[in-house]
Nucleic acid binder design. Structure first.
Lengths: 152, 152
DNA sequence: CATATTAGTGATGATAGTACATTGTTACCT
DNA sequence: AGGTAACAATGTACTATCATCACTAATATG
């Protein structure tokens, strides 16, 4: 019943509801969490080799091959040869996928505005600062944990 | 750059970090997201028939059989006959699992306190109210969506 | 030329989910 | 009662995803 527990519980609930919402958005498409991760990475990092994807997403190259296979089959990404390294392949977002991701971001912005609208105006600034602080602290903690037990 | 986008982005980041943290906690155990969902449900609802579990978690009864099989093999739950209905089976948390879940809740509480400690004291009340409001609004939205397209 | 790198293949395994059929049990209805 | 329908759990079978390792083919690099 302490406010501390309530805060975390609410955050967890929010996180769960988000997840459910995202999952529902991709219902009926061949998109899954792992595949969307690839798409987001491409949005953030731009066209990349599969090796680069594997490193950033921290999965095996073999796994990336499979994920890109599925995304390519669905028309979400294209494979083009690397201009100078003939071993490598560049994975790029297809135009439609880029549009979809933009739409998704727009939806997120709309949802964000909606959610913020539910907050009392006087509380908004403090809320934003507070979430920022929590995110920062959490980032710190995760980073520290990662250091404590580095991957072998 | 608008604050609205920032809020949602931070919330998503927080939710992702949480997920990562939880996943890491279960590394090396046979526990997975789906199985832990069962455990949480048992914590919340107490000993239940598999049918009840299936309904609350919204998966097929057959699926529950498999999840409970794995949890039982790992010693997390026990199956006992239903006292009056000989068709049914009661799934209960094993003592060790109950303890583990309590520990997890304690860890959550500690983490919550830590995170709240990172927030400026003057912002805390507003933050709590704000998150509460956001969670409420989000719950509303998800419920409305569920109504709009009821399962067939 | 020797070695490291990039991608792809094949094989394998664990998980999560489904549908369908089966078995035993309960509940209801005549 | 007795018959029938609904129900709980499970066996079988299947699909899809995500992940790994081991290996091959091409290409870069020093």
């Amino acid at each position: 019943m302490t406010p501390e527990i309530t805060v975390l519980d609410r955050l967890l609930e929010v996180s769960e509801l988000f997840q459910k919402d995202v999952a529902r958005a991709f219902d009926g498409t061949p998109l899954t969490t792992a595949r969307v991760r690839v798409l987001w990475d491409l949005v953030a990092a731009g066209p990349s080799t599969q090796h680069a994807l594997a490193e950033r997403l921290e999965v095996s190259a073999r796994n990336i091959t499979g994920l890109v296979d599925a995304l390519e089959a669905g028309g979400y990404v294209t494979r083009t040869p690397h201009p100078t390294d003939r071993r490598a392949i560049i994975v790029s977002l297809a135009a439609s996928a880029r549009q979809m991701m933009q739409q998704m971001q727009a939806d997120h912005a709309a949802l964000s505005a909606d959610l913020l609208g539910a907050v009392a105006p006087a509380d908004r600034d403090a809320l934003v600062r507070g979430i920022e602080a929590i995110a920062g602290r959490l980032r710190e903690l995760v980073a520290a944990e990662g250091e404590a037990s580095p991957r072998p």
